[in-house]
Design a protein around this nucleic acid. Structure first.
Lengths: 201, 201
DNA sequence: CTCTTGTTGCTAGCGCTGCTAGAAACGCCG
DNA sequence: CGGCGTTTCTAGCAGCGCTAGCAACAAGAG
């Protein structure tokens, strides 16, 4: 009865909901493209509004502010990273090979897509990860590293902790190299050292 | 003769030069204090000008822009880091103890003085290090790490490269922990793992 | 078909940023 | 004391993130 009465009127709100969700995806996609092509400095609310062909305040009806838009880009970008890591790990066999594949993919991602990497790991201080549980893509990406590290865990060592340390090494190499603090030529050598010492020689 | 003629008139410019240098130090010190007490977001050119009790444009007669001021703070801050590292390394003996002391001091510096650490290692992309030789304090700080790592270099390994990798690990731990991406409780455990694996078990 | 109602998106504007042009004030010299 | 060169300030530009308040629209009622 009640359901029947509501059925027809319900279709309209549904469509509008869908359109709203579409526009939200449009915003995130535009922000990501703009950031990746011209850097985050070029991602201003005005520019972004022009890009999606809506006015500025529309952005604020979807996101609390610019940081929230960056966070959305970061979460989506992290899903891409996780996918690349998964593929890298699956594409080779052998403990060291897998570690090398995952490590190479990770730092290559940071080099190829610096804006995205920055959004995920250096820019935002208040990604949900801090307060509550990290968003799914983050856990997924970390899970890929963990799976690669798991076989080299020594007795008495905690795989999670070891993976975190390995991750920190990768993150340090990625960021220090990209900002010109480490010479890029020797990057492969440093990666090899990191993996060798992770496997304890 | 010429020198005698120039002697007296020279005294005035000298004094002005000295006063200018004093004011420049004042600016850098004010910027550092403001950044360390209220964060870099609070360091605006207006606020900084008010702090040193001069008008805004005075800043631009000393530095090309805000970034140049941050760079000056970074270089000076790096000298402080280098001094702490030197003291840490000198205060203990034994290979592992020295590595632990240096590593602990490094990450502790990043935790205790986040604004300074950010200026040195994450914020500025155009520190002189990228284009020409790194500024002295940077080389000095790196030298401390290198001295601590040197004894654990294995045959066929390059100490410099190994130090860079170790540094990347420290930097990764420092930044990921400070931004809430790694839980701080397990920090010591990760540090221990890093050192253990650096010494290859 | 017209009128009312509620939502949606817009225009305009606030207070702030880094930075700079041109005027004013200062200190030095003859 | 008068003129000159430097130093420093006032005032303003363009752009930022963000928001209040109005206009235009779509949907239902008579």
């Amino acid at each position: 009865m009640l359901a029947l009465l509501e059925f027809l009127p319900m279709r309209i709100p549904r469509r509008r909901e869908r359109e709203r969700a579409d526009r939200e995806r449009l915003i995130v996609r535009a922000a990501q493209e703009l950031a990746e092509t011209e850097g985050w400095d070029a991602v201003t609310t005005r520019r972004l509004a022009a890009e999606i062909e809506y006015s500025q305040p529309v952005l604020y009806s979807h996101f609390k502010g610019k940081d929230a838009i960056m966070a959305a880009v970061a979460v989506q970008g992290c899903a891409e990273l996780a996918a690349e890591l998964r593929q890298a790990r699956a594409s080779v066999s052998g403990t060291r090979e897998r570690l090398a594949a995952v490590a190479g993919t990770y730092t290559s991602f940071a080099r190829r897509r610096p804006a995205l990497y920055d959004a995920i790991f250096t820019r935002l201080v208040d990604l949900p990860s801090a307060t509550e549980e990290a968003p799914a893509p983050h856990r997924e990406a970390f899970g890929e590293l963990l799976a690669a590290v798991q076989p080299v865990t020594a007795e008495g060592e905690d795989t999670g902790l070891l993976t975190e340390t390995f991750w920190a090494g990768l993150h340090g190499l990625a960021t220090l190299t990209r900002t010109g603090r480490l010479p890029p030529e020797a990057h492969e050598g440093r990666l090899a050292l990191l993996i060798t010492h992770l496997m304890r020689g």
